[in-house]
């Protein structure tokens, strides 16, 4: 499964390879149970932002608005022009937000900014399926959007 821009005939910038790998993996899963088990394994890999980057109470500017699991995102510039992304999820029951954060961390930290900027928030539904609540879908989409926004902001400032 390769994602194409909706309004263009030519392919949009490719996604970060690790993200595309995840999308391919999840795209092949027909069982909700398999998808959920995989997401739980990924959520187990979630690492909250280290104290060297941010400490509580976090600056509200880093809050993902619309994410009810109280996710926060930080984007730190690398010398090579890419970004390192860090996350925290304050709701201890926010397992889906943790899984999404772990995917974004692994896929987007150090990835070319144009690839990160090209990510469509609707990939959430490839990972989680379409039978998640509106609020959950929106919150996870906003988490992706927060990462994309940072990449686009850096690209605009270049």
């Amino acid at each position: 499964m390769r994602f194409l821009a909706r309004s263009q005939e030519t392919p949009m910038a490719s996604y970060p390879p690790k993200l595309q790998q995840y999308l391919d993996d999840f795209g092949f899963m027909s069982s909700r149970e398999d998808r959920v088990d995989y997401l739980i394994d990924i959520a187990d890999e979630f690492q909250p932002v280290p104290s060297s980057i941010a400490s509580k109470p976090y600056d509200e500017a880093h809050r993902v608005i619309g994410c009810e699991s109280e996710a926060f995102v930080w984007a730190i510039d690398r010398a090579d022009g890419t970004l390192d992304f860090y996350f925290d999820v304050l709701n201890p029951q926010g397992l889906s937000a943790m899984a999404m954060s772990a995917i974004l961390d692994q896929a987007c930290s150090g990835a070319p900014l144009d690839q990160v900027a090209a990510i469509n928030g609707e990939v959430v539904f490839t990972f989680f399926g379409k039978d998640i609540s509106m609020g959950k879908g929106r919150g996870l989409t906003e988490l992706i959007n927060a990462v994309v926004y940072q990449a686009r902001r850096r690209l605009r400032s270049d």
Partner: peptide, 8 residues
């Protein structure tokens, strides 16, 4: 709401 919680 979170579909991962029960299976986890």
């Amino acid at each position: 709401e979170d579909p991962l919680l029960y299976p986890s």
